[in-house]
Structure formats: C-alpha cells, structure tokens
Design a protein around this nucleic acid. Structure first.
Lengths: 111, 111
DNA sequence: ATCGAAGTTCGATGGTGATCATACTTCGAT
DNA sequence: ATCGAAGTATGATCACCATCGAACTTCGAT
C-alpha cells in the first residue's frame, strides 16, 4: 500500500485515539480561548472547515500551532484537500471518552 | 455591625458570585492537576476540609496559592475555624451556572 | 505568657506556552 | 512554467504561573 499513507500534501498527521489522551491534555487544549473558539465554530457548523475560514485573531503561524494542539489532543481530525487543511470535530469519540465535556464547555455563549 | 465582617482570623476573603466568574477563569483554575485534585477530594467527601488534610504534593505556600485560585474562581468557599481554614465545594452554585462541568471533569478517575 | 500548629506573605526562580515575522513548501489555476 | 493561495517550519521573544524557602501572623492549648 502506498497511497494509504499519503493524502494531499505530506504525511497524514498523527491522530491519537481519544481514549489514549489524558484529561489533562484535553483541558490544556481547551483552556486557550482561541482554541475553544475553533472548537465552538466546529461544534456549531458540523461541517469540514478549512483553517483559513475561521474567525481568528492570530497570525497564520499561530493558527497552525493551535490546530496542531487540538489535533494532538484528539479533539479534531485534519485532512488535506488541495492546499487547504480541513478540520472536523471528533464529536462522537470525545463524547464517548469524556461524556458531557463538550456540552459543558460550549453551553454558554462565552468564547 | 462589626462581627459580620470578621470570622476567625483577618477579614473574610472575597467570594465572588459564581455567575460573575467567566468560564475562562474556571477553566484556568481547573486545568492545574493539583487544584483539580483538591476539587476531586471535596467532591468526594462532601464535608468541610481543612487545607492541611488534603493529600498535596506541594509546599504549604504553594497550597495556599492553589486554594486562593480556587476561591477566586468561585469554586470553593472558605472560612476559618481556629487556625484552620475549612473548604467546601460550591457544588450547587457551580452546577447552576456551569451545568455538567464538574461531573464531566471528575467522572474519570484521573487526577 | 509560651509554644506549636496552621496558614499567609513575600520575593525569587524556572519552565512553559502563546505569539510573531520570515522563509519555505505544496498545490491548483492560468 | 509561473503565480498566488494556504499552510508549515523555525527561531526569538515575552508574559505568565507554579513552585519554593524564609520570615511572619494568628490562634488554641498548656
């Protein structure tokens, strides 16, 4: 198999199993308001979203950093489509491992 | 009224309304594993607990700092009894403002 | 009135993480 | 084959925060 490891540009980035991620890591990911904003947008839209389509207040390189942190915490799944990197919330997996967490964090309209 | 402001040593420390605390502040309080351990013990015991009775891995001065952070985030209530400072979880108030949050964070046996 | 127990206060320190600019890569479109 | 758009990599900077020790305060008990 050759194509399985590639999709778009470069290697497919590492996506841990949500069950292998510690609560500590998840909280460290979600304590940042920019990242919580990303998760909130994904939670609301329920569609693939390219990194560039988010309403972010930080530079592109910082945005890349935040998306990486979210992916490594098992919160989002990323894949390439052309030059765009599409993002989805791993909602069901998160709910299975951390039941109620996303709802509790996103319930209020807060950033 | 004179005694209302005093109870045990010094002034009664400031306890914000939970509704006035931002989710950001609550998360910043709960992202620290030592503080989450304190909350977990309070959640399990459901009784007043003196600071010194907790199973903490840090020095006394650091412990004081952590309890202060939790109080200022609206998560615990503190009062003096003799030289001891007793702590309770503000469970109902937290549940009213951030429903499901404590359960989601403390569900797993994780620190 | 003394002593110890329980916390507090006060700097100092060290590590971590968010941020940015710059340079670079990769892809699609022309 | 070139160009621009979308992101990535890298290195630097900066602020914040957890941590500690040492000195201090306050209270109850003797």
């Amino acid at each position: 198999m050759r194509t399985a490891e590639r999709e778009g540009r470069g290697r497919v980035p590492a996506h841990p199993e949500v069950g292998d991620v510690s609560l500590q890591q998840v909280l460290e990911a979600l304590v940042d308001p920019v990242r919580r904003g990303i998760v909130r947008e994904l939670y609301a839209s329920d569609e693939d979203r390219a990194c560039g389509t988010f309403d972010l207040t930080v530079s592109k390189s910082t945005a890349t950093h935040h998306f990486n942190v979210l992916r490594e915490a098992g919160l989002i799944r990323q894949r390439y489509v052309g030059t765009s990197r599409m993002n989805t919330l791993r909602r069901n997996e998160i709910e299975a491992v951390f039941p109620g967490l996303l709802d509790a964090l996103l319930a209020r309209g807060e950033a």
